[in-house]
Design a protein around this nucleic acid. Structure first.
Length: 595
RNA sequence: GGCCUCGUAGCUCAGUGGAUAGAGCAGCAGCCUUCUAAGCUGCGGGUCAUAGGUUCGAAUCCUAUCGGGGUCACCA
């Protein structure tokens, strides 16, 4: 692209004019702001020190050098310390003709390198997925695709938390109050059924605590002494001992949950290359901890528990193994990290996990390093912010969650209502209409969530719901459908998309802006991959669609009489459609041919 | 309390040291006998939390303060 060419020539210019070996960070190129003339701007302040001239003089001098020595440079102007460079029309036209048919525009060649393992979703099996999981799933899936587009060899992994006290709570409540209810008998989706009993457990558990507290016990103690929690713990112990009856119930109820999750994932359009189960990995870390004790990097206390002192790293002491020899969260994660390292020998291990676990992942890295695992540095925690509701944080047990299945259904219903209101439905048969509502509803939801910086907390207001106009997924999808409509009509009319233009063809401002936007896409994909941020792609897609709509509104395409111009606009349209598809693919958003 | 993080228009968000800080929504006013109006155009709206500092240049980096969130379990 032109930026590379310019960077090379600017390096040369600085060397010849000022005898300076410029570092890449000194060469600051940016797109020229619309209010100024030019395409690309060089900030020359960093060079004034060596030029010993004013910013204006330095910029002028460099501009002259570039114009004289670089064929692509048409002209330049100087405003303060900014050198605005105009690139020749030929460059833009040849960029268009060389790329507008390129299906994989924006995608890098796949590198022959070690894989990047992305873990996301990682649900518990005691309740259905909610809005928080949706953000996790969308981020993980989209990041995987962005990395793939950047040429990485990506493995998408899910680690299902299928064991532990929370599942035992649902099991116990179902045994006691379920009357043999099944997904078939109740018509409830499996994960919702199990989640229902998780709530039932909590209700009776709270009642027991209340009784104990009324009897004079303090709340903390009561929550440990309540009969229900004790019984749930006994079930967990039986599970760990391999008790057949408990295991069978566990398998049955988890089976229901998996059936439910499968539907949710499918509706959401999320996939994994491999699924791991914590019941099969939770013991893995113990040997590592023993190894650490032998190496003397972890310490065993008199009661048998194992600790690591991280005060040198500015952290606390951390428990690695309980006194009774059982694993804690950290033990398990040490094990699964090691397993993953051995299995894939990855270039990078990415964990898509909420920012509430930042401390945990910092500790994980340090603990691994103490063991001598230099690869701990390849662990990247994509620490995304919480989704908050107007009332505050979501809490499963208090019923203040936005359920994933309900939310998606609402999006489908809203997009249907919207389509009816706009009088769009006559054109579609039932199946096509149904698909359209899904495509648009999901597009709205996914874009809404992915457009915000992953690191930031975000607010979701169910009452105002998700928009379908303005800076939204449907806006981008609509732009695509609009282009396709034009292209269909061009095809019917037998119009040709020209493969080359003579230099007399005009390049209007709207055409030029659109072309420049398209031109930026490949570099932007790399940036998004580097920043681990789908938001970068989402915002780009919106800007591209806006740019196209402006172009569409200002200039005629099919009615244009100049064949050169008509051909140019058709190829621009085709190119834009392709880039929209590619960008939205990276977000996991599909595109309708008509809407 | 220690550590981490966020604070930009009425609301939701862009802006990874560069020019006069941008979008969408909401509000107001226009544009469909012409390629899809889920679109386009215009108007109003800002002490970039506050105060210092670094720099030719700060919403962006540093320090402090204020405010929101998170975290500091033999829970996961």
């Amino acid at each position: 692209m032109i930026e590379q060419i310019l960077t090379g020539k600017i390096t040369e210019a600085v060397k010849n004019l000022y005898q300076l070996e410029a570092s890449p960070s000194q060469i600051q190129l940016q797109n020229t702001r619309k209010e100024f003339e030019g395409d690309i701007t060089l900030v020359v302040f960093p060079f004034t020190r060596v030029s010993r001239k004013s910013p204006e003089a330095t910029a002028a001098e460099m501009g002259e050098y570039l114009q004289a020595n670089l064929a692509e440079v048409d002209n330049f102007n100087v405003i303060k310390g900014f050198l605005n460079i105009s690139i020749k029309k030929e460059y833009w036209l040849s960029f268009l003709t060389e790329n507008y048919l390129f299906e994989k525009f924006g995608f890098q060649e796949k590198q022959d390198s070690k894989p990047v393992v992305v873990e996301y979703s990682s649900p518990n099996t005691n309740k259905p997925l909610h809005l928080g999981h949706i953000r996790n799933n969308l981020l993980g899936f989209s990041l995987s695709r962005i990395l793939q587009a950047a040429g990485k060899n990506v493995v998408k992994v899910n680690l299902v938390n299928d064991r532990g006290i929370h599942i035992c709570k649902s099991m116990l409540a179902w045994q006691r109050w379920g009357n043999g209810e099944t997904p078939e008998s109740s018509g409830l989706k499996g994960d919702h059924l199990v989640g229902k009993y998780y709530v039932v457990f909590d209700k009776y558990f709270k009642e027991e605590i209340a009784v104990l507290v009324a009897g004079g016990m303090n709340a903390d103690e009561a929550s440990k002494k309540a009969p229900l929690i004790i019984e749930a713990q006994q079930i967990l112990q039986k599970w760990e001992a391999g008790d057949e009856e408990v295991i069978n119930l566990w398998k049955k109820m988890n089976g229901w949950v998996y059936d439910g999750f499968a539907i949710t994932y499918k509706t959401l359009g999320i996939e994994f290359d491999k699924t791991y189960y914590e019941s099969q990995t939770y013991l893995l870390g113990k040997e590592l901890v023993q190894e650490g004790v032998q190496k003397g990097v972890y310490t065993r206390r008199a009661d048998g528990s194992v600790w690591i002192d991280l005060s040198a790293e500015g952290m606390d002491e951390k428990l690695l193994l309980r006194s009774d020899g059982t694993s804690v969260y950290m033990t398990q994660d040490l094990g699964t990290a090691m397993q993953r390292y051995n299995e894939y020998n990855p270039e990078q291990l990415i964990y898509v996990v909420g920012n509430e676990q930042e401390y945990h992942f910092n500790v994980l890295k340090v603990v691994l390093k103490h063991l001598g695992c230099a690869w701990a540095d390849s662990i990247y925690h994509l620490s995304y912010g919480m989704v908050e509701l107007p009332a505050g944080k979501m809490k499963s047990r208090e019923g203040t969650v936005v359920d994933a299945d309900d939310l998606m259904q609402e999006m489908f219903d809203t997009s249907e209502a919207m389509a009816r209101e706009l009088g769009k439905i006559e054109a579609f048969d039932t199946d096509e209409a149904r698909n359209l509502y899904r495509t648009i509803g999901l597009g709205a939801l996914k874009y809404f969530i992915l457009k915000v910086d992953p690191k930031k907390n975000m607010l979701f207001n169910p009452a105002e719901s998700v928009d379908f106009n303005g800076n939204t997924g449907p806006f981008i999808q609509y732009t695509y459908a609009r282009i396709k409509s034009v292209l269909r009509k061009a095809d019917e009319a037998g119009y040709e998309v020209l493969l080359s233009y003579d230099n007399s063809v005009a390049l209007h401002p709207e055409e030029k802006e659109l072309l420049r936007k398209l031109h930026d896409f490949p570099a932007l994909v790399l940036q998004a991959a580097d920043m681990h941020s789908p938001a970068v792609i989402a915002n780009y897609a919106f800007e591209l669609a806006s740019e196209y709509n402006r172009f569409y509104h200002e200039l005629t395409i099919l009615k244009e009489e100049n064949l050169q111009s008509r051909g140019l606009r058709l190829s621009l349209s085709q190119f834009t459609a392709k880039v929209i598809v590619n960008a939205l693919w990276m977000l996991g958003i599909e595109v309708p041919e008509r809407m």
